[in-house]
Amino acid sequence: MRAVRALSAYRGELSKLASLPSVWAACLVGVVVPAGVAIINARSTSVDAGFQELAFGVVGVIVLGVVAASSEYFVDGEDNGRQITTSLTVVPSRTRFLLAKIAAVTTVATALAVVAAVITLLLIGQAAGLSRMFGAVVYWVLTALLAFGMTLLTRNGIIPLALLILNTSVVTVTFLLAKITTLAVYFPDMAGIRMFITEVDLPVRLSPVAGGAVMAAWVVALLVAGFATFRRRDA
Protein backbone atom coordinates (compact mmCIF):
# COMPACT_ATOMS: atom_id res chain seq x y z
CA MET A 1 0.00 0.00 0.00
CA ARG A 2 2.83 2.35 0.89
CA ALA A 3 4.67 1.40 -2.27
CA VAL A 4 1.53 1.92 -4.36
CA ARG A 5 1.07 5.43 -2.97
CA ALA A 6 4.73 6.25 -3.52
CA LEU A 7 4.49 5.03 -7.11
CA SER A 8 1.33 7.09 -7.72
CA ALA A 9 3.02 10.20 -6.35
CA TYR A 10 5.98 9.56 -8.66
CA ARG A 11 3.69 9.11 -11.68
CA GLY A 12 1.96 12.36 -10.77
CA GLU A 13 5.27 14.22 -10.67
CA LEU A 14 6.34 12.75 -14.03
CA SER A 15 3.00 13.76 -15.50
CA LYS A 16 3.48 17.29 -14.15
CA LEU A 17 6.91 17.61 -15.75
CA ALA A 18 5.78 16.14 -19.06
CA SER A 19 2.91 18.62 -19.36
CA LEU A 20 4.92 21.81 -18.73
CA PRO A 21 6.05 23.59 -21.90
CA SER A 22 9.09 25.00 -20.07
CA VAL A 23 10.30 21.46 -19.34
CA TRP A 24 10.12 20.60 -23.03
CA ALA A 25 12.02 23.80 -23.82
CA ALA A 26 14.62 22.78 -21.22
CA CYS A 27 15.00 19.37 -22.87
CA LEU A 28 15.41 20.98 -26.29
CA VAL A 29 18.11 23.30 -24.93
CA GLY A 30 19.81 20.37 -23.22
CA VAL A 31 20.20 18.51 -26.50
CA VAL A 32 20.66 21.38 -28.95
CA VAL A 33 23.23 23.45 -27.01
CA PRO A 34 25.94 20.78 -26.59
CA ALA A 35 25.27 19.29 -30.01
CA GLY A 36 25.38 22.74 -31.63
CA VAL A 37 28.63 23.68 -29.96
CA ALA A 38 30.02 20.27 -30.91
CA ILE A 39 29.27 20.95 -34.58
CA ILE A 40 31.05 24.30 -34.37
CA ASN A 41 34.04 22.69 -32.62
CA ALA A 42 34.04 19.63 -34.85
CA ARG A 43 37.75 19.96 -35.56
CA SER A 44 38.76 20.03 -31.93
CA THR A 45 41.36 17.42 -31.04
CA SER A 46 41.32 18.00 -27.29
CA VAL A 47 40.97 14.91 -25.11
CA ASP A 48 37.94 16.67 -23.67
CA ALA A 49 36.31 17.26 -27.06
CA GLY A 50 32.58 16.70 -26.69
CA PHE A 51 32.79 16.69 -22.91
CA GLN A 52 33.40 20.43 -22.74
CA GLU A 53 30.24 20.87 -24.76
CA LEU A 54 28.39 18.69 -22.27
CA ALA A 55 29.64 20.83 -19.39
CA PHE A 56 27.97 23.71 -21.21
CA GLY A 57 24.71 21.97 -22.10
CA VAL A 58 23.89 21.54 -18.43
CA VAL A 59 21.75 24.71 -18.81
CA GLY A 60 18.86 22.43 -19.86
CA VAL A 61 18.83 20.48 -16.61
CA ILE A 62 19.24 23.68 -14.59
CA VAL A 63 15.96 24.90 -16.06
CA LEU A 64 14.41 21.49 -15.39
CA GLY A 65 15.41 21.47 -11.72
CA VAL A 66 14.34 25.07 -11.15
CA VAL A 67 10.98 24.69 -12.88
CA ALA A 68 10.17 21.45 -11.01
CA ALA A 69 10.17 23.48 -7.80
CA SER A 70 9.17 26.98 -8.93
CA SER A 71 6.08 25.82 -10.86
CA GLU A 72 4.56 24.78 -7.52
CA TYR A 73 4.78 28.34 -6.25
CA PHE A 74 4.04 30.29 -9.39
CA VAL A 75 1.28 32.85 -8.81
CA ASP A 76 -0.68 34.20 -11.71
CA GLY A 77 -2.67 37.23 -10.61
CA GLU A 78 -3.88 37.85 -7.07
CA ASP A 79 -6.89 35.58 -7.20
CA ASN A 80 -5.07 32.55 -8.44
CA GLY A 81 -3.85 29.94 -6.03
CA ARG A 82 -0.56 28.18 -6.23
CA GLN A 83 -0.26 24.64 -7.46
CA ILE A 84 1.39 23.54 -4.20
CA THR A 85 -2.00 23.63 -2.46
CA THR A 86 -3.34 21.10 -4.98
CA SER A 87 -0.18 18.99 -4.78
CA LEU A 88 -0.31 18.68 -1.00
CA THR A 89 -4.00 17.89 -0.86
CA VAL A 90 -3.39 15.03 -3.31
CA VAL A 91 -0.14 13.82 -1.71
CA PRO A 92 -0.41 15.07 1.87
CA SER A 93 2.80 13.48 3.14
CA ARG A 94 5.47 16.09 2.48
CA THR A 95 8.22 13.50 2.60
CA ARG A 96 6.50 11.33 0.00
CA PHE A 97 5.80 14.40 -2.12
CA LEU A 98 9.43 15.56 -2.12
CA LEU A 99 10.87 12.08 -2.70
CA ALA A 100 8.50 11.64 -5.66
CA LYS A 101 9.61 14.99 -7.06
CA ILE A 102 13.30 14.18 -6.64
CA ALA A 103 12.76 10.82 -8.32
CA ALA A 104 10.91 12.43 -11.24
CA VAL A 105 13.57 15.13 -11.73
CA THR A 106 16.27 12.43 -11.60
CA THR A 107 14.44 10.34 -14.20
CA VAL A 108 13.99 13.16 -16.69
CA ALA A 109 17.53 14.53 -16.12
CA THR A 110 19.05 11.07 -16.64
CA ALA A 111 17.15 10.47 -19.86
CA LEU A 112 18.02 13.93 -21.16
CA ALA A 113 21.70 13.57 -20.21
CA VAL A 114 22.05 10.18 -21.90
CA VAL A 115 20.46 11.43 -25.12
CA ALA A 116 22.53 14.62 -25.14
CA ALA A 117 25.77 12.79 -24.34
CA VAL A 118 25.31 10.16 -27.03
CA ILE A 119 24.43 12.73 -29.70
CA THR A 120 27.25 15.11 -28.76
CA LEU A 121 29.97 12.48 -28.47
CA LEU A 122 28.89 10.85 -31.75
CA LEU A 123 28.90 14.21 -33.53
CA ILE A 124 32.42 14.95 -32.40
CA GLY A 125 33.66 11.41 -32.89
CA GLN A 126 34.80 11.17 -29.28
CA ALA A 127 35.65 7.55 -28.53
CA ALA A 128 36.17 8.04 -24.80
CA GLY A 129 35.13 5.26 -22.46
CA LEU A 130 31.77 4.69 -20.92
CA SER A 131 32.99 5.74 -17.49
CA ARG A 132 33.51 9.34 -18.60
CA MET A 133 30.13 9.41 -20.24
CA PHE A 134 28.67 8.07 -17.03
CA GLY A 135 30.46 10.90 -15.21
CA ALA A 136 28.85 13.47 -17.50
CA VAL A 137 25.39 11.98 -16.92
CA VAL A 138 25.91 12.03 -13.14
CA TYR A 139 27.04 15.67 -13.41
CA TRP A 140 23.83 16.59 -15.22
CA VAL A 141 21.61 14.78 -12.74
CA LEU A 142 23.37 16.32 -9.73
CA THR A 143 23.15 19.77 -11.34
CA ALA A 144 19.39 19.31 -11.84
CA LEU A 145 18.99 18.33 -8.18
CA LEU A 146 21.18 21.25 -7.09
CA ALA A 147 18.92 23.64 -9.01
CA PHE A 148 15.86 21.93 -7.52
CA GLY A 149 17.22 22.15 -3.96
CA MET A 150 18.08 25.83 -4.31
CA THR A 151 14.64 26.67 -5.68
CA LEU A 152 12.93 24.67 -2.94
CA LEU A 153 14.56 27.06 -0.47
CA THR A 154 13.87 30.29 -2.39
CA ARG A 155 10.38 29.22 -3.64
CA ASN A 156 11.05 31.43 -6.63
CA GLY A 157 12.92 30.43 -9.74
CA ILE A 158 14.47 33.75 -10.72
CA ILE A 159 17.45 33.87 -8.36
CA PRO A 160 18.64 30.26 -8.75
CA LEU A 161 18.05 30.37 -12.50
CA ALA A 162 20.04 33.59 -12.96
CA LEU A 163 22.82 32.46 -10.65
CA LEU A 164 23.27 29.00 -12.14
CA ILE A 165 22.87 29.93 -15.79
CA LEU A 166 25.18 32.94 -15.61
CA ASN A 167 27.76 30.80 -13.87
CA THR A 168 27.69 28.10 -16.56
CA SER A 169 27.41 30.31 -19.62
CA VAL A 170 28.53 33.91 -19.26
CA VAL A 171 31.01 34.28 -16.41
CA THR A 172 32.04 31.23 -14.46
CA VAL A 173 32.32 32.96 -11.12
CA THR A 174 33.26 29.75 -9.35
CA PHE A 175 36.19 29.30 -11.75
CA LEU A 176 37.41 32.87 -11.23
CA LEU A 177 37.16 32.40 -7.46
CA ALA A 178 39.35 29.33 -7.77
CA LYS A 179 42.07 31.67 -9.03
CA ILE A 180 41.86 33.58 -5.76
CA THR A 181 41.29 30.81 -3.24
CA THR A 182 41.93 27.10 -3.65
CA LEU A 183 38.82 26.46 -1.56
CA ALA A 184 36.73 27.40 -4.59
CA VAL A 185 37.69 24.16 -6.31
CA TYR A 186 35.25 22.53 -3.92
CA PHE A 187 32.29 24.42 -5.35
CA PRO A 188 29.82 21.83 -6.71
CA ASP A 189 30.36 22.66 -10.38
CA MET A 190 34.16 22.91 -10.15
CA ALA A 191 34.34 19.61 -8.27
CA GLY A 192 31.70 17.90 -10.41
CA ILE A 193 33.33 18.50 -13.81
CA ARG A 194 36.28 16.33 -12.69
CA MET A 195 33.97 13.39 -13.31
CA PHE A 196 34.35 13.79 -17.06
CA ILE A 197 36.75 16.63 -17.91
CA THR A 198 40.43 15.73 -17.64
CA GLU A 199 42.17 18.99 -18.55
CA VAL A 200 41.17 21.53 -15.93
CA ASP A 201 43.18 24.62 -15.08
CA LEU A 202 42.52 24.44 -11.36
CA PRO A 203 45.00 24.55 -8.46
CA VAL A 204 43.93 21.34 -6.71
CA ARG A 205 43.79 17.90 -8.33
CA LEU A 206 40.70 15.82 -7.59
CA SER A 207 39.99 12.34 -8.90
CA PRO A 208 36.70 11.85 -10.78
CA VAL A 209 35.28 9.92 -7.83
CA ALA A 210 36.40 12.53 -5.29
CA GLY A 211 34.99 15.32 -7.49
CA GLY A 212 31.70 13.51 -7.82
CA ALA A 213 31.57 12.88 -4.08
CA VAL A 214 32.14 16.58 -3.30
CA MET A 215 29.37 17.60 -5.67
CA ALA A 216 27.02 14.94 -4.30
CA ALA A 217 27.71 16.18 -0.78
CA TRP A 218 26.59 19.68 -1.81
CA VAL A 219 23.43 18.29 -3.35
CA VAL A 220 22.62 16.17 -0.29
CA ALA A 221 23.21 19.14 2.03
CA LEU A 222 20.95 21.40 -0.06
CA LEU A 223 18.20 18.80 -0.30
CA VAL A 224 18.33 18.10 3.44
CA ALA A 225 18.05 21.84 4.12
CA GLY A 226 15.22 22.06 1.56
CA PHE A 227 13.44 19.09 3.15
CA ALA A 228 13.68 20.51 6.64
CA THR A 229 12.38 23.93 5.59
CA PHE A 230 9.64 22.51 3.40
CA ARG A 231 8.31 20.25 6.16
CA ARG A 232 8.35 23.00 8.75
CA ARG A 233 6.89 25.98 6.96
CA ASP A 234 3.34 26.64 5.86
CA ALA A 235 2.73 25.68 2.24
Binding site: P21, S22, S71
Partner: peptide, 9 residues
Amino acid sequence: LDGSGAHRS
Protein backbone atom coordinates in the same frame (compact mmCIF):
# COMPACT_ATOMS: atom_id res chain seq x y z
CA LEU B 1 -9.03 26.62 -2.23
CA ASP B 2 -8.29 29.97 -3.88
CA GLY B 3 -8.09 30.16 -7.66
CA SER B 4 -7.70 27.15 -9.89
CA GLY B 5 -4.78 25.55 -8.03
CA ALA B 6 -3.39 24.78 -11.47
CA HIS B 7 -0.32 26.05 -13.32
CA ARG B 8 -1.26 28.49 -16.08
CA SER B 9 0.74 26.85 -18.84
